[in-house]
Design a protein around this nucleic acid. Structure first.
Lengths: 204, 204
DNA sequence: GTAAAAATCGACACCGTGTAGACTTTCTGG
DNA sequence: CCAGAAAGTCTACACGGTGTCGATTTTTAC
């Protein structure tokens, strides 16, 4: 089994299998888009990637593992991006920028993100990945709220709990809106931004 | 096939099948609780209800249909209850009462509600049922916001859109919290209530 | 150029689904 | 009360998807 390349980044020339592995994930993403998780069969993925089922099992142990890898690939991009994004001090601006970034995220990766959310329950690995991602957002929102003067702490009416609720609001709102259209998503974003601003007491 | 009893309420003595039908749904609910939807097999349900797979297919056409019926049964209770609940004019009180009712709802039916949410995508019938339920909530929240002075309308920063976002916030927050404990749910409720109050401009 | 490692294939066993047909139990009306 | 119909139940089967295995071919490394 390939996978798990922790430190061997540039060992020898790229294995042929690495190509296939990517082809499998790409196919999986495409199939997910117009068949959905349940309808998508291991045979479909293999066929799309140009190999047989038997060969696919050389790379991944199951359909679930394929999807876990796909989610991991996407989510790592998210982490990467959020790490390299400039942090603004001014809360109003920070909120606007965060929402803008989130819209882009969902425009680009909405499908995989929705899949991740849907499978969080049934596939523990994905649940892990997604809850870690959510934690990053919650931490960021908490920081903005505190900077805007909301009392720090974990009690129900303090920054931490509020940030969590706002995170879920954004997740769910974007989840639904991203199934519609870009315009819907943009409007949903405006609404969320507005509610975030109000919650932070920044409406004067 | 039984089911579809629109107006024949008290026709003859209760059919034996009605008993079985309820037994099937009860078993399904129980299995859902400690095996989850995917792990639960039609054979499991039949066994739990004291019949064979073949007999179960007399009542329901598939596992999905069983779960749809279970969700429908639960959701009808919700509708029933929300219809018979007193409406309060004073916004602050209306919000407090709504949140209290919602906590009770999730305490009693959390499992089925989470299942409904999870399957909304894959089972259109359930998606229908749940989105209708959400609409009831959104309408109610919208009314409260307007009464509290938020401008009516469907633009991103007006009552309707805000209500939708708040509804998703509550749904998702309760979804997660109800998996933990009653205390967590109660705290989550307090946070949501706080955010709802702030959004309605009722914090003076 | 060759031997080990990587990749691929086809066949198989297993399990869950849904259907069919025969059989039994329960109701209903004369 | 009893015969025919309706309701309920069962066993057996066919199908489709999953995951495994051993044999075989291709690629890579020295």
């Amino acid at each position: 089994m390939p996978s798990h390349h922790p430190a061997r980044s540039r060992r020898s020339t790229e294995r042929k299998g690495d190509l296939r592995e990517r082809a499998i994930l790409d196919t999986c993403e495409a199939l997910l888009a117009h068949k959905g998780y349940n309808a998508m069969t291991v045979g479909d993925i293999a066929q799309g990637a140009g190999i047989t089922r038997g060969a696919l099992y050389f790379y991944f142990g199951s359909k679930q593992e394929v999807v876990v890898a796909l989610v991991a690939r996407t989510v790592e991009q998210l982490w990467e991006r959020s790490r390299t994004t400039a942090q603004t001090d001014e809360p109003r601006q920070a909120i606007a920028e965060a929402m803008q970034r989130t819209v882009e995220l969902w425009n680009e990766h909405g499908l995989v993100m929705r899949t991740a959310i849907d499978l969080s329950l049934t596939v523990p690995e994905i649940g892990e990945l997604w809850s870690h991602t959510a934690d990053l957002f919650i931490t960021a929102i908490t920081a903005v709220l505190e900077r805007a003067g909301i009392q720090a702490g974990t009690e129900p009416e303090q920054a931490s709990a509020m940030a969590r609720a706002l995170c879920w609001m954004i997740e769910r709102t974007f989840y639904h809106a991203s199934q519609e259209s870009r315009e819907t998503l943009q409007e949903a974003s405006a609404t969320c931004e507005h509610l975030w601003l109000i919650s932070a007491g920044l409406t004067t």
